[in-house]
Amino acid sequence: MSEPPKERVKYIDTNLNLPYHYYAGDYKALYLRALKDKKILGSRCSKSGKVFVPPVIASPETLAPCDELVELPHRGIVTTFCVVNVPVYGREIEIPYVVASVALDGADVSLYSLIQECAAADVHMGIRVEAVWKPDGERQGDHTDIRYFRPTGEPDAPFESFIHRL
């Protein structure tokens, strides 16, 4: 035969498996461990005074260090949100459900969390919410320690109070 087979090998399966050993860094380590003690940590910019949560070592705006760590309240405002109607692999939660951006009181950026204990249709921008934690003894120091946020029933926050904290 003067040439290779016409019927070629069309694909090669290449199953890459790369080992990593990620380090959280001290700020994220403190943040995650504090969740175990029902504390939400942020860091304050030494120049602008803005509070970042989770804490960052420097402000992306001013590039000044954020040396001071602060404890944030467990209440805040839904700034923006979405209603999820498609099942996500690995997430066992009844659809539709709400994922929201929650600006804690005193924080200048928001966290992402689920909103539960209310109908998806009742969630709106400006609604006041509070954290619902896993019970004592079950918290592991990771982001699932806050199970979700739920409405507090307080009056809505005005739009201007959170539009810059999305």
Partner: peptide
């Protein structure tokens, strides 16, 4: 330090 081992598959 806090760390996590993880195998990333492609």
């Amino acid at each position: 330090p806090m760390s996590q081992r993880m195998n990333v598959e492609f």
